[in-house]
Design a protein around this nucleic acid. Structure first.
Lengths: 221, 221
DNA sequence: ATCAAAGTTTAGGTTTTGATAACTATAAGT
DNA sequence: ACTTATAGTTATCAAAACCTAAACTTTGAT
């Protein structure tokens, strides 16, 4: 079994290995993410390397092995199923479930996870639109774009990648959720803002391009 | 916050402080219960004493303080609500929920516990019939008797105190659950068995008096 | 070639939990 | 009362799981 800390390191490596094309994560990034000193990460990577969870070459960064990736996807699956369970079955607000899931993901048994999956009808996405890995460790993410990088046009919100409760609450005030269809009206790149309107609503939403970096969308005819 | 281990010690002290009339638990009993050596318990009691969770006098045993009892009842409340939630909402078998709850009780947030309580309609008892302490830390247990100490007559099963999955499965085979009404037909004190029949069923149940020690009943009719 | 940034190493520390084993107090029997 | 058995205590040690500090080494860029 992996300790809670180990699981969190695996998640962190996984998160950042998307960014770099090589799939190698520089350890400083992990250190920054987890709030520990670089030396701690070096040690931990050696440890994980000994357990065959990461491949780690000195100063070259780290990448997950197959079994490391399986472990990471398993935790992510747990996390996302738990989040969805808390929202759908227990009626919690989507802005509140992240921290709870962060704890529970390390503790809930496989059987209970399987039961949640069943109760939720083998869902594809969590409340924030993040895809849920299958039990066998397959994650399918459709092709989406960051709203921050889109031209004006009509889009569907697919996923919110920043799970700060403040930001999520702000989105709910506009009833702007994954699935929502909207028009990106105007981009003010000098002012650093963009404005959009939800279909079927008059109110205009203005947000920073920076914030729009955490909204993943797809084109909607 | 209390660590998982601390919480388990508190539960153990609570469990055994019912038995002794003085409310003082001898440390050897805790050691046996938790599977650690006596020295470890002494140390731990000093530690808990320093945190004002138990009152501990050398060689006199330990008892919970008010705040220790509050903490213990809080964990017991969590445990029992979680068990009931797993059975009622998630459809798990009553024989399977103990271990899961044993893990979750240390991790689930207060908010989630409150939500479970609400979803379950502020239940009074867990799936094994054990009373659930209120959020304010009040535990009301009706007056029950051990089946092992009853004369022949008609009774209602209130609580099963031994949560071994084997025993619970055995009870379910007879559909013998908390709430079931039955006739205690015959007591064979020499053979060490008793036999009873569930109302509305013909099959007779024979069990050891020892096993009947973990069934709490009240007179019915 | 030099320098800054990034990463590594070493040595050490904390917390939490536990064991061992010698010692001591208490209670019980003769 | 004296011995013995039982239970509990003490002091010491240990190990796992984390982490830091700070000096040192690469690496890549200017």
């Amino acid at each position: 079994m992996n300790s809670r800390t180990t699981e969190n390191y695996l998640k962190a490596v996984y998160r950042h290995s998307r960014a770099n094309s090589s799939g190698n994560v520089s350890l400083g990034i992990i250190a920054g993410d987890l709030g520990v000193t670089p030396g701690t990460v070096t040690q931990m990577m050696k440890h994980l390397s000994g357990r065959d969870l990461v491949v780690y070459e000195s100063r070259r960064g780290a990448a997950l092995t197959d079994s490391g990736e399986r472990a990471a996807l398993d935790i992510i699956r747990r996390h996302r199923l738990i989040e969805l369970f808390l929202v759908e079955v227990m009626g919690l607000d989507w802005a509140d479930v992240h921290d709870e899931a962060e704890e529970l993901e390390h503790v809930v048994s496989d059987r209970l996870i399987a039961r949640m999956d069943e109760m939720l009808g083998h869902p594809a996405r969590d409340p924030h639109g993040a895809p849920i890995p299958s039990a066998s460790g397959v994650l399918k993410s459709g092709q989406t774009r960051r709203l921050a990088e889109c031209e004006t046009g009509t889009y569907r919100l697919i996923q919110v990648t920043k799970e700060t409760s403040g930001f999520l609450e702000w989105l709910s005030e506009y009833k702007f959720f994954p699935g929502s269809i909207f028009d990106l009206h105007h981009i003010d790149s000098m002012g650093g803002t963009l404005s959009l309107g939800l279909s079927g609503q008059n109110k205009k939403i203005v947000m920073s391009i920076e914030a729009a970096g955490s909204l993943l969308v797809e084109e909607a005819g």
